[in-house]
Amino acid sequence: MFNTIKMAALSALVGLGTLAALPAHADSIYLGFGNNQDPRVGVYTGDDDGNYREHRRHGNWRRSCSPERALDKAERMGLHRIRIIDINRRTVKVAGRQYGDRVVIVFANDRGCPVLYR
């Protein structure tokens, strides 16, 4: 009986020691129960940022504000019937309708499409 309790206690200490050392080795621990696209269930360790970096490096990633990005950002800001009215090396001008009024937004031709004028 004493041997069984001793082995259970030793196993518990080894298990807790492994779990305590795991976050020092991995960036993150994820407990996944699956979703509609991924039915897998389990514990995942590590950082999944490598796929994002790989996608960003090989995808159509630019450091400037493309016209498509400016249109997407204007649409997220609530404009309807949006169109580009002017593009130069420093700005991208987008016009559209919001609450029935005509709105012109000027984006800087820089990373993230910052708004210069609205």
Rank of each mutant, 00 (worst) to 15 (best):
M1H: 10
M1I: 10
N3E: 15
N3A: 10
N3W: 15
T4F: 15
T4S: 14
T4E: 15
M7V: 13
A8G: 02
L10P: 01
L10W: 05
L10S: 07
A12N: 04
L13G: 02
L13V: 00
V14L: 11
G15H: 08
G15Y: 13
L16F: 11
A21R: 03
L22C: 00
P23C: 01
A24R: 14
H25G: 01
A26R: 09
S28W: 09
I29W: 04
Y30E: 10
G32P: 04
G32F: 09
F33H: 08
F33Q: 09
G34W: 03
N35E: 08
N35D: 13
Q37F: 13
P39T: 12
V41R: 09
V43Q: 06
Y44A: 12
T45F: 15
T45S: 11
G46D: 00
G46L: 04
D47L: 03
D48R: 15
D48P: 15
D48E: 14
G50L: 11
R53L: 13
E54A: 15
E54T: 14
E54Y: 15
H55M: 11
R56G: 10
R57E: 10
H58L: 13
R62T: 12
R62K: 12
R63H: 11
R63L: 11
S64R: 14
C65V: 04
C65W: 00
E68D: 06
A70E: 02
D72R: 14
K73V: 05
R76W: 01
M77K: 09
G78D: 00
G78L: 00
R81V: 00
R83V: 07
I84K: 02
I85A: 10
I85W: 04
I87K: 02
R89E: 13
R90H: 15
R90D: 14
K93H: 13
V94F: 02
G96Q: 01
G96C: 00
Y99D: 12
Y99W: 09
Y99K: 10
G100D: 03
D101W: 07
V103G: 01
V104Q: 06
V104C: 04
I105M: 05
I105T: 07
I105W: 05
F107T: 00
A108R: 05
A108M: 04
A108P: 02
A108V: 04
D110E: 15
D110M: 13
R111K: 13
G112K: 01
G112L: 02
C113V: 03
P114Y: 02
V115Q: 02
